[in-house]
Simulated scan of single mutants.
Amino acid sequence: MQTSPTFPATFKLGGDLAINRLGFGAMRITGPQIWGPPEDRPAMLALLRRAVELGVNFIDTADMYGPFTSEELIGEALAPYPTDVVVGTKGGLVRFGPWADFLNDATPQHLHDALDGSLRRLHLERIDLYQLHRIDPRLPAEKSFEFLAEAQRQGRVRHLGLSEVTVDEIKHAQQYFTVASVQNRYSLFEREAEPVLDYCREQGIAFIPWFPIGGGQEIGQSGLQRVADRHQASERQVALSWLLHHAPNILLIPGTSSIGHLEENMRAAELRLTAEDMQELDAVSQ
């Protein structure tokens, strides 16, 4: 059986940062409902350090996670950072309680304050990847883009990215700065963002799926289980591996608060799916 041809182990974020394509999403290291401190802070610090030990060199977070808790834990656990570790964070969303809705605030003043806070909590002088968490519908998008471009010129951020955007919105942002990454919801079971993924691949932009296994709701599909059985792997590992094989610009950031689940997720990078496997999984997703 022929192996799927698109499986590079790394991707050059922004053209210059070599990233292992299986990273870590740090949303779940906070308290319940992504609010407040974790119940076991030392365990979350150990989880972050274990991720780096396993070869993770890209960690994704946001100032909203906690809020602020995820960034604080990353800074405490890993600073001063190993030279190859890249932390990407996001600003532009706010929330005022564990059950409250997410609210947009991508005004230049808020982004200025958010970026200052992220730099301080992460113990960094420059953030390697800073992403606009959402375009704010209350103001012209160019106001946010102009602030981000200026922050990059000032050396406060190295690369800039976007989250939950359309192709047209990426093109708009590209008039102000080079878009290094796009972070949209996408998985084997949720492929509405396929046109965005295609555009990012053409442009050399990293595509970072959030909810990369769709929350796990679709685990148990017969086709997925058959492929997992053939590789003596879990269905979660196969769903992650499908993403790595599907497009070479995909960077994965599965999140967890368990070292056991972290280690299971990392083994997904060892799977080599065949063309037959990919066809069967594509049928599942359709």
Rank of each mutant, 00 (worst) to 15 (best):
E71Y: 01
L47D: 06
D113I: 05
E142P: 02
D60G: 06
L124Y: 03
L162Q: 00
S163M: 07
L162T: 00
T178L: 05
G155N: 13
R95T: 05
F177W: 04
P137T: 12
S163R: 10
R95E: 03
P82Q: 12
T107L: 04
Q109S: 13
A62L: 11
E39D: 15
L162S: 00
R138C: 02
F96A: 10
L132K: 03
D63T: 00
G36M: 11
L115D: 10
L111H: 05
F96E: 11
R138Y: 01
F177K: 05
E72Q: 14
T178D: 11
L129W: 00
L47N: 09
E76A: 14
G88H: 06
F96Q: 08
K143S: 10
D128G: 01
H123P: 01
L48R: 10
D60M: 11
F68V: 11
G36Y: 10
P67K: 13
L119R: 03
A100Q: 12
D63L: 00
E164T: 08
V167E: 10
R158T: 04
R126H: 07
L54E: 11
R138S: 12
V167F: 12
D105P: 09
P140M: 07
S163N: 08
P80N: 10
E71M: 09
G117I: 06
T166Y: 09
G55A: 13
R156D: 01
D40L: 07
G92Y: 10
G55E: 07
L78T: 06
H112S: 13
D63P: 00
R138G: 12
L132D: 00
Y176I: 02
P67F: 06
N104C: 14
E39G: 15
I59F: 08
E39N: 14
T69N: 09
D105R: 14
V157F: 00
Y176E: 04
L148E: 11
N57C: 01
L45T: 14
Q109H: 09
A149M: 04
L132V: 03
R49G: 07
I74Q: 10
R138N: 13
H123C: 03
Q174M: 13
G36K: 12
Q152K: 15
D113E: 14
R41L: 14
E71K: 01
V85L: 15
D101S: 12
R134L: 03
R41P: 06
G161R: 07
V52E: 02
A51G: 14
V165L: 06
G155V: 05
P42N: 14
L139G: 07
I34Q: 11
K90Q: 10
I34V: 13
A46I: 03
S70Y: 09
A51P: 07
L129N: 02
D168C: 02
I127C: 07
Y130N: 04
P140Q: 12
N104Q: 11
